[in-house]
Amino acid sequence: GGHTALLGKTQDFFQICDTEGKGFVTRRDMQRLCEELPLSSEDLEDVFDSLDADGNGYLTLEEFSSGFSEFLFGRRIS
C-alpha cells in the first residue's frame, strides 16, 4: 500500500544522492546536489548533518528514510 510507495520514493531520493550506488551518501555526494537542486552547498551541509543521526559521516538509507518520514509526518506547524 502507501507504505511501500513511500519506501520506493525514499529509495529514489536516496539514489539521487548516492549517484555512484555505494549504498551510502557522503558529505561530498550531498554537496554535489547543489548543481541539481536549488540549495546552496551550505544548506546541503546542514541537511547532511541533520540526517546523519550518528554523525559518522555516512548517510545510510535507514537514516535517510527516517529523516524523510520525519519531514512527512513529524513536521510541526506552529
Binding site: K9, D12, F13, I16, E36, L37, P38, L39, D43, L44, D46, V47, D49, S50, L51, G67, F68, E70, F71, L72, R75, R76
Partner: peptide
C-alpha cells in the same frame, strides 16, 4: 534552548531539501 532553535532551522532546510527532491522527481519524468 539553543538546541531547539537549531532543530527548527534544520527542519526548514530539510523541508526545502525534500520539497526540491519531490519537485525534481515530478519535473523530469
Amino acid at each position: 534552548d539553543p538546541n531547539m532553535k537549531g532543530a527548527a532551522a534544520n527542519e526548514g532546510v530539510l523541508a526545502n531539501f525534500f520539497n526540491s527532491l519531490l519537485s525534481k522527481k515530478t519535473g523530469s519524468p
